[in-house]
Design a protein around this nucleic acid. Structure first.
Lengths: 243, 243, 243, 243
DNA sequence: CATGAATGAGTGTTCATTCAT
DNA sequence: GATGAATGAACACTCATTCAT
């Protein structure tokens, strides 16, 4: 189980001068799964007032970006709209992010990391593969219900950018999430709860299935299915469980 | 079963002079399932040399568009690139398509229709729900293996445009395909081969699952899984079959 | 009086190969004022069937041009619209006119020449300066009432092109018409009916005044003045007559 | 008399951020006729440095626009030429004006308003209808002698745009000016100085007559008439005065 | 001669990014 | 640091003109 709980490694970014928001990346080699927010407050403890303001601005802009990107799509969104939404001037955005692309990636990254942290925390307290799969599904449904804007860009813009532009970082972000599932699957197969299968591709399949169910649930209001979590769990469980 | 076999029908477009390619096809009361290609060859029989040239140009441009859109993404692709790739001048593109968006939609549409036709044809010769599901999966894997560019835009641009821009036509294009599966599920449940389930959302789930498996297969070269069709079929079949 | 009756001299065009419509230019040195149409039929007498067809096409296109130019303005009008309106293909227009500009000028020219001919004919039968002024005004009101499209381009496009583009030919076309009035004024002053005044500028003034009155009459439907010809005559006559 | 003296009022535009120049002015109940320029200097008193710079840029661009529009005509003029002439980049033009059309209208509008203000001021100090007519003529000759570029677009582009394009604002701009004359005529007829006549159409006639005289004077250098103001005044006065 | 498909130069407009204040 | 005016590269789209058939 342990591997699950390892937080995502921060990409070893060459320390770019103007990147002031390293807080969104989780420190490596920490055994206790800690939420992103926890980390942050820790960090804040050692920060000057200036740093606090900076982080505040950065978060504000990130949120505005998420909202506007979700609303208009990456290309149609303009820096001006985001700045206005964040209550800052256009130039200010560039004090915190190198480019529009960078801002977009940061907003994706932050969302994915927070999601990852929550999911990992839930997984940790689940004793069996069945409970883990349920936890995985429920945590994601929970998180995205609270972060619909994020889901929209995660769902609609991610594949576009990840595939078309050779952005390995983006692919990593994606893969990291499937890795959590791979652990569940591998552990379950080892323990005999799950039937043998090609782990990576099955994990990806399960992952995408959950993603699709989320899309139906989050993006289309009129759901014919009041408990999509249960349905999707059933579906997956039939597909992977022993017996 | 019958409904499955109905091919998509071309919308009865008011015959716009410059629009050579038929729009999205809607089901209609035609018993003999005919492929789009069949239809076309029929039509060609009555065409003058001029018409042939026009269709040729149009196809040329459509193919170039598909390629460039797949390569750069919708927004990054320029009409100039497409024109150059098609071996025509920029203005020529506008003789055949009203706008960049129109060109994009046309390339999606044509691809989806051809896919739909092939899938429907395969479904028709499958006697049982199991065989139908296999046919559905195999036909799609076959088609996209032969049309990788198309898969790329289908996979990466579709959600973006369908969700962000309120393009009902696009959503229709998407839905039409899930309808084929709904028929399979509904028939299977009725005949007792499949267990009862909420048909539309399950169909969508299965559809998306296949789509995701395709993405793994088509977009990522190094597959750990030599027979993704089989894996995905197994997975789904466990999820929906009786017992 | 005699000078009045001299028709406009054709501009000594270098005989451009593709200019098939020289008929719209009046021959010089003809004492009897002849209408443009009369001239044409004369000319036609010596023409082959081909020539007749050509002239017919040319006239058709010219009329279509006048209509479309009047409707959309010079710049917004397209050759395609004109061709369609004339019932020919776009390329055909270029068989008869060198360029869009050429077509525009030709349509202006033809209209002005016909107008000139009619006005000159009326002037000829007017015995006194007063009658001549009345004839001048009435002939113009008559002509433009029958040729509203022409008036529109004459009024709205002429100044633009005549002033902005250094098109001497256009200026000539304009000046020729004021010359008719100059003759009336000069004769009237010589005979003592009119008070002395700077002839060219007064002629131009009177000319423009009539043009303005026409604009009110032709372009604005709701006229508060049922007899603009009378009003404008009175106005001018007070301005130029003796005592 | 009073109505004459009312200056045009700025339309109470919803304060669009980027619109610095007031729109067409409509008459209102202000007794002291104040010139637009006077108004401006007042305003400047309360302006920050930034505002001054903005107004400067705006004026600069407006002047460049006037010049280029006068030189090439509306359609042939390009934003690039105007920007270059104003010493700014193309994009900058769009910071101050929404579109080419907007820029053109603004330059027309500003010129017309300044003209209107000057004319109204002159009219105010003229005691009799005769003096008013003289003031009207002289003020216009003065103004346009100082603003030749403006006259060119006023004269050559106005009719084209006002007639062809259904731009009511443009027609208003035109009409506002004739209204000044209508007041003069109406007052004169009431006081018995002028003979009875249909006021609106006569005003328009007189207005157009002056406009034509100006065109001769401003656009054609070689004038045979050293004092066109006097000539045109005489001409009009004979046409409208009693006896 | 007539056609109309093909061309490609030309332009209004947008918007990410910079930088002087 | 924060601002927002200025920039100019980029791009969709138009349309007069040509020319092969």
């Amino acid at each position: 189980m342990a591997p699950l709980l390892r937080p995502l490694q921060p990409q070893s970014q060459p320390p770019k001068v103007r990147c002031i928001h390293p807080g969104i990346l989780l420190p490596a080699k920490i055994d206790r799964p800690v939420s992103l927010l926890y980390h942050r407050s820790m960090a804040v403890a050692g920060k000057s007032k200036k740093d606090v303001i900076q982080e505040f601005r950065s978060t504000e802009i990130l949120e505005a970006a998420r909202h506007v990107f979700a609303l208009r799509g990456y290309h149609a969104a303009t820096i001006d709209q985001i700045a206005t939404h964040a209550g800052v001037a256009k130039g200010t955005v560039y004090l915190y992010f190198d480019s529009k692309r960078d801002l977009f990636l940061a907003s994706l990254r932050e969302g994915v990391l927070a999601l990852h942290a929550e999911v990992a925390a839930q997984l940790r307290s689940a004793p069996t593969p069945q409970a883990q799969l349920q936890a995985f599904i429920n945590a994601r449904f929970d998180y995205f219900a609270r972060n619909r804007d994020f889901f929209k860009i995660y769902y609609t813009e991610f594949p576009q950018l990840a595939t078309v532009t050779g952005q390995p970082e983006l692919q990593d972000l994606y893969d990291q999430q499937a890795k959590l599932l791979e652990s569940v699957l591998a552990d379950g197969i080892r323990s005999g709860h799950l039937r043998s299968c090609p782990v990576p591709s099955t994990a990806r399949l399960v992952y995408d299935l959950i993603r699709s169910a989320l899309a139906q649930h989050i993006l289309n209001e009129p759901a014919d299915n009041p408990h999509p979590e249960a349905t999707v769990f059933q579906f997956i469980w039939k597909g992977i469980s022993q017996s």
